[in-house]
């Protein structure tokens, strides 16, 4: 970055003459060193996965979760500064609960992503704050079932005026990625963190846009992609954490849950096997200096 030292990177919300906000770019740098996160939007659900680098042998395996639940049907995982990610999740939960108190219904995923994008963007505008050091992947399933209003105890009159259009399709899977700038897009497959390049290359091979990938296959792919993305930092141990949200008829009944242990272990086994098959490929040298999460 040639513009470093010109003074335009010392304060948040200040543009450089060529139209860049350096504080935001530095936040992106923090993300690029974080553990790889992957989200896959399948036809009947969404999978989230994260590579957790084991920073100490004294940490209890399986504890210290990195994927969080928001409301019942949304999962959030983030790369970058873990405490920033926790605050982001806390805000997401507040937004979901405030939506419920206003509208007496769960927040649609698109609305949640919009609220969170706006929140993150606000942290690029003021000199008293710094941008979020995380890129978050938000996955969820908006219920396709006819939902009552929260607290509704009856169905009301069976006759009389109605305003509902019948036969419309509602709900389905959703996947969004929110960056430190506040930018957010919806994705078929999203990856962030250290191994994002390799992960994105793998995601692109899956032809997710055609909507043929099943949730079960998505779980196996997500596990494999995390293993592929970990190739460049092979010297470090890592733990795989995965969660999923299925359709209302599926295994999680529209809720965001951890992937059950047996399915996770099976997916990890398959991922390791796939990696062994690729071993003849020359392993590329680890990029840059080794960085702590």
């Amino acid at each position: 970055m040639t513009s470093i030292g010109t003074g335009y990177d010392l304060q948040n919300s200040v543009f450089s003459p060529d139209g860049r906000n350096f504080q935001v770019e530095y936040a992106v740098k923090a993300v690029e060193n974080g553990g790889t996160c992957v989200g896959i939007r399948c036809k009947d659900g969404v999978v989230l996965a994260v590579e957790k680098i084991v920073t100490s042998k004294l940490l209890k395996p399986g504890a210290n979760k990195r994927i969080a639940t928001v409301d019942r049907n949304v999962g959030v995982v983030s790369s970058g500064l873990v405490p920033d990610g926790r605050h982001f999740v806390s805000r997401a939960r507040d937004e979901a609960s405030s939506w419920r108190s206003t509208y007496k219904a769960p927040i649609p995923l698109a609305a949640l992503a919009g609220r969170l994008g706006g929140y993150v963007q606000a942290y690029t505008l003021y000199s008293s704050v710094r941008p979020f050091g995380v890129t978050a992947i938000v996955g969820g399933w908006d219920s396709e079932a006819e939902l009552g209003v929260d607290g509704q105890v009856g169905s009301g009159p069976s006759i009389g005026a109605g305003g509902k259009v019948s036969g419309t399709k509602a709900g389905g899977p959703g996947l969004y990625m929110i960056e430190p700038s506040g930018l957010y897009w919806g994705y078929y497959g999203a990856a962030t963190g250290k191994g994002r390049q390799a992960a994105k290359a793998e995601l692109e091979k899956l032809d997710l846009a055609s909507g043929n990938l099943s949730l079960e296959a998505g779980v196996r792919e997500a596990a494999r992609i995390i293993y592929v993305a970990h190739e460049d930092s092979k010297d470090k141990d890592f733990e795989l954490e995965m969660s999923w949200i299925s359709s209302t008829e599926g295994p999680t009944k529209g809720r965001h849950q951890e992937v059950p242990k047996d399915i996770l272990e099976e997916a990890e086994k398959a991922a390791k096997k796939a990696m062994e098959g690729d071993d003849e490929e020359e392993t590329t040298a680890a990029e840059g200096e080794t960085m702590e999460e």
Binding site: K65, A68, T69, D71, R93, S97, R100, D150, G151, V153
Partner: peptide
């Protein structure tokens, strides 16, 4: 009272949501 029941129902709903944040 039915309206108080509806309030309690929403209260229990939000309790269930927050209880399930942690697995």
């Amino acid at each position: 009272d039915v309206s108080d029941m509806q309030y309690l129902d929403r209260l229990l709903n939000s309790l269930d949501v927050t209880e399930n944040y942690s697995s």
